[in-house]
Amino acid sequence: MKVLLYFEGEKILAKSGIGRALDHQKRALSEVGIEYTLDADCTDYDILHINTYGINSHSMVNKARKLGKKVIYHAHSTEEDFRNSFIGSNQISPLVKKYLVSLYSKADYLITPTPYSKNLLEGYGITVPIASISNGIDLNRFERSEEKEEKFREYFKIQKNQKVIICVGLYFERKGIVDFVELARKFPEYRFIWFGHTPMYSIPRAIRTIVKEEHPENVEFPGYIKGDIIEGAYSAANLFFFPSYEETEGIVILEALASEQQVLVRDIPVYKGWLENKVNCYMGKTNKEFANLIEALVEDKIPNTCQAGYEVAKEKSIERIGHELKDVYEKVLGNESIEQNEQVQ
Rank of each mutant, 00 (worst) to 15 (best):
Y234M: 13
E276L: 09
E295N: 08
F241C: 10
E330K: 14
E231T: 08
L121C: 12
E80D: 13
L120R: 10
N287M: 15
D39T: 01
V270E: 03
F241A: 12
K118D: 04
P94A: 15
Y45R: 00
W274Q: 02
V279W: 10
F86Q: 02
L5Q: 03
K326I: 04
G232D: 12
V263I: 04
F7G: 02
D138P: 12
N51A: 04
A64P: 12
A21R: 00
V344R: 12
A64S: 15
G17D: 00
I50H: 00
K186I: 02
K226E: 13
A14S: 13
L257I: 14
N292E: 15
R20P: 02
S317T: 02
S59I: 07
E336K: 13
G176D: 06
T114Q: 07
L183Q: 05
Q262L: 04
Y109P: 00
Y124A: 12
I126G: 01
A14H: 09
I50F: 00
L257K: 15
L4N: 01
P269E: 04
K175E: 02
Q343G: 03
R141H: 09
D23E: 15
V263Q: 07
S89H: 08
R153N: 03
N280C: 08
N56R: 03
A237I: 06
L170W: 01
K2G: 03
Q262A: 03
A64G: 15
N90T: 14
F192Q: 04
I166M: 09
E289Y: 02
E231K: 12
K69P: 06
I251Q: 06
L254I: 00
T198V: 00
P222N: 04
Y124S: 11
F290L: 06
E154A: 02
E31Y: 15
V279P: 05
N135I: 10
I47F: 01
L239P: 01
E213F: 05
E311K: 15
V252R: 00
I338T: 08
Q307D: 07
E10Q: 07
D300Y: 13
N84P: 01
A258P: 03
D46E: 09
H76Q: 11
L139W: 04
R144K: 14
D179R: 07
